[in-house]
């Protein structure tokens, strides 16, 4: 359950910037190839925010889809999973998006 550690780092990243200001909502960017489950983060969020300035804050997710570019044919396409395979048969695929794992912004109360 690495989501617990990662969700704790949400609290750290936010309070480092906002101090003790009450936070009404937190927007995270969790790409669909990031290897982190938003539902599990939401579950952990209530636990790790108890007694902090994020207590009771709404957690929102942007979930960018995976996108890859084939280094052989140059085509860009949606990556539904981590299997790096282009329709042209090449497995030499660069992941362009989908691995994001960041706190984007917060709204203060």
């Amino acid at each position: 359950m690495h989501e617990l550690t990662i969700t704790q780092s949400v609290v750290d990243a936010v309070t480092e910037r906002t101090g003790s200001a009450r936070v009404a909502s937190v927007r995270l960017r969790v790409g669909r190839l990031a290897g982190v489950v938003p539902d599990a983060m939401a579950f952990c969020f209530g636990l790790v925010t108890a007694g902090t300035s994020l207590d009771g804050a709404v957690l929102e997710f942007d979930q960018p889809e995976g996108r890859g570019r084939c280094r052989t044919c140059g085509r860009e396409f949606v990556l539904a999973d981590l299997l790096l395979l282009c329709d042209c048969g090449s497995a030499d695929v660069e992941v362009l998006a989908g691995r994001e794992l960041a706190v984007a912004s917060v709204v203060l109360a």
Binding site: A13, V14, L28, L101, A102, V103, A104, V107, L108
Partner: peptide, 14 residues
Amino acid sequence: SRTVDIETALLAKN
């Protein structure tokens, strides 16, 4: 006025 951009990678510290 109330939105604060954070833009911090969650694994940045690690």
